[in-house]
């Protein structure tokens, strides 16, 4: 008799709990907007935090709630943003794909060293130590603060300066924020003619610290038929909207600081 009771009790308890749980699963079912999952699939998925949210999940939720802009995720790329736009039923305003570029050519031997830095491998630390290990106060220090921040493995350190692989770059902007010297900037991908220097010292001083420094001579400006180059603060700058990527400026630059990718 006891064994019957025992079996019955467990059976009944199991049934009751099962029933209650089934009921609870229905009753307490939390509606998860399916758009959240769809959007999550379009995102970069690196939880890089460049959008300002705690991660990709939080960003997707914020987009659905209408708190975040649909183009807030740079790593999603133009295609991803377009997809998100479709999911949300909004027109995506997709600009051209951006990439981060290093505005410095001061490799070892080109840019002069001020002292031999042998301390903690961080640009921020080195930059604070007597003006940094390179004579040029605008130079890339090449100690890899940007590399540490890059979630996409796009940055490598070569010969004392950073290199960014444009194919891997998602323009999330983490490296731009990490660089203590503001050497990295975001540019349209098609902008392949680049002035690789931002030294605003006068010509002599600039040339004294780096062989590839822009001396602000204005040869490129004269050569440019489209008025796309301005020389301000001692260095040349290309206006992306006017530039036709003809490359004439690079040919005449006496300092070889305009390069074509």
């Amino acid at each position: 008799m006891i064994i019957v009771y025992a079996g019955l009790l467990l059976g009944v308890l199991g049934l009751v709990f099962g029933g209650v749980l089934t009921f609870a699963a229905k009753k307490f079912h939390v509606e998860v907007d399916e758009r959240v999952n769809q959007i999550k699939e379009c995102l970069g998925g690196a939880n890089c935090g460049a959008c300002g949210y705690a991660g990709c999940d939080a960003f997707a939720q914020a987009v659905v709630d209408g708190k975040a802009p649909i183009d807030g995720c740079a790593p999603a790329g133009a295609k991803g943003i377009e997809k998100i736009g479709k999911i949300m039923g909004m027109e995506a305003n997709v600009g051209e794909r951006l990439v981060a570029r290093v505005i410095c050519q001061g490799t070892h031997g080109i840019a002069k060293d001020r002292y031999v830095y042998d301390g903690y491998k961080s640009c921020a630390v080195a930059a604070g130590l007597a003006g940094g290990p390179k004579d040029c106060r605008f130079a890339c220090l090449g100690l890899g603060d940007c590399q540490d921040k890059c979630k996409f493995d796009a940055i490598t350190m070569e010969n004392g300066i950073a290199h960014i692989d444009p194919d891997k770059c998602t323009a999330c902007g983490a490296c731009v924020k990490a660089c203590p010297r503001s050497v990295i900037s975001l540019m349209p991908e098609s902008q392949n003619v680049i002035v690789r220097c931002r030294n605003s010292d006068v010509a002599r001083a600039a040339r004294a610290v780096c062989m590839d420094a822009c001396i602000g001579c204005g040869r490129c400006k004269k050569e440019c038929k489209y008025d796309a180059i301005v020389v301000e603060n001692g260095y040349a700058r290309i206006i992306s909207e006017k530039c036709t990527r003809c490359g004439e400026c690079a040919a005449v630059c006496p300092c070889k600081c305009i390069t074509i990718e």
Partner: peptide, 24 residues
């Protein structure tokens, strides 16, 4: 039968509490 009954209760309870908390 107490041990097996307790385990059953606890397992079901935790499940239920989890669902309840998720909602409320």
């Amino acid at each position: 039968m107490s041990t097996i009954a307790f385990i059953l209760v606890i397992a079901a309870l935790v499940q239920f509490v989890e669902m309840f908390l998720k909602k409320s």
